[in-house]
């Protein structure tokens, strides 16, 4: 079973994302900010990361930069999931190493479509 780390400071969003990802066969771990997510990745690199942008302690972009520098950190497929919908920011996320990008609000169908697009299904 593939693993996905859901990184979001909103417990509600994590719960919604968990349900959608479990429906398409993922085993889920959760983190509330980038620092916590980095600790998860150092312990066990997931197959995928669903990543919020704006979070306390460490935001999604900084987490992504640091993840890609970790040993094995280029492996996880990273899908941003954020309210940020400005094209400049989307481009920045992709240039930093994101593979796909979801703009909130989202539903299970969008998650499944984006994960398929990213080669995860």
């Amino acid at each position: 079973m593939k693993t996905c780390l859901v990184v979001d400071d909103s417990r509600v969003i994590r719960k919604v994302a968990r349900r959608a990802l479990e429906d398409i066969g993922f085993e889920i771990a959760e983190a509330a900010d980038g620092m916590e997510a980095l600790a998860w990745c150092r312990a066990a690199m997931p197959d995928a990361v669903l990543l919020d942008w704006n979070m306390p302690v460490m935001n999604g972009l900084e987490f992504l930069q640091r993840l890609r520098q970790e040993p094995g950190g280029d492996a996880p497929v990273v899908v941003f999931c954020t309210v940020e919908n400005r094209v400049d920011n989307i481009r920045l996320a992709l240039d930093t190493g994101a593979d796909e990008y979801i703009m909130k609000p989202f539903d299970g169908e969008i998650i499944a479509a984006k994960f398929a697009e990213a080669g995860l299904l």
């Binding site: 989307i90 992709l94 796909e100 990008y101 989202f106 539903d107 169908e109 969008i110 479509a113």
Partner: peptide, 9 residues
């Protein structure tokens, strides 16, 4: 919603 159904980013 519509652009996120099937359109790669």
């Amino acid at each position: 919603f519509e652009v996120q159904r099937g359109l790669p980013i």
